[in-house]
Computed example of a mutant assay.
Amino acid sequence: MIAKLDDARTDALFASHVQRSEQPTAELIRAAVSDTVSRLGPARCAEVVAQEFGEHPDTALGRMLWARNAIRSAFA
């Protein structure tokens, strides 16, 4: 159950406006996840991830790795 929640949060952060270069705080990451899920819903977040991997596979992987690590830290 926790793994699925982390996956949904990771998708939401990936789909959000937050950029790694901003060096976001845990508070900003949690707020971005909440806002993105509220705006798009979990299914649309997953669709955005899939679309980005299809259109920009060269950059999507790096963003996904960053998002996963950021979620693990922000929600530890």
Results as ranks from 00 to 15, higher is better:
residue 44 R to V: 05
residue 20 R to Y: 01
residue 17 H to N: 08
residue 41 G to I: 00
residue 66 W to I: 01
residue 6 D to C: 08
residue 39 R to F: 07
residue 71 I to E: 06
residue 41 G to L: 03
residue 55 E to A: 07
residue 27 E to H: 09
residue 38 S to W: 15
residue 58 D to E: 11
residue 31 A to I: 10
residue 42 P to W: 05
residue 13 L to I: 10
residue 51 Q to S: 06
residue 33 V to C: 12
residue 7 D to H: 12
residue 71 I to M: 15
residue 29 I to H: 11
residue 46 A to D: 09
residue 3 A to P: 00
residue 44 R to W: 03
residue 29 I to V: 15
residue 3 A to S: 10
residue 7 D to Y: 08
residue 61 L to I: 09
residue 10 T to E: 15
residue 23 Q to V: 05
residue 49 V to R: 15
residue 72 R to Q: 13
residue 42 P to T: 10
residue 20 R to P: 00
residue 35 D to C: 02
residue 62 G to M: 06
residue 2 I to L: 11
residue 39 R to P: 02
residue 48 V to R: 15
residue 26 A to H: 04
residue 30 R to W: 01
residue 65 L to F: 12
residue 66 W to E: 12
residue 49 V to F: 15
residue 53 F to N: 00
residue 61 L to Q: 14
residue 60 A to L: 08
residue 12 A to T: 01
residue 13 L to Q: 04
residue 60 A to N: 00
residue 73 S to D: 14
residue 19 Q to S: 03
residue 6 D to V: 11
residue 11 D to S: 14
residue 17 H to I: 00
residue 52 E to L: 13
residue 45 C to K: 02
residue 25 T to M: 03
residue 8 A to R: 14
residue 68 R to I: 06
residue 24 P to E: 13
residue 73 S to F: 09
residue 22 E to W: 11
residue 12 A to E: 04
residue 35 D to F: 02
residue 19 Q to K: 08
residue 10 T to C: 15
residue 16 S to K: 07
residue 61 L to G: 08
residue 44 R to N: 00
residue 45 C to S: 07
residue 53 F to E: 02
residue 48 V to L: 15
residue 24 P to K: 08
residue 11 D to L: 13
residue 56 H to D: 12
residue 58 D to S: 07
residue 63 R to D: 05
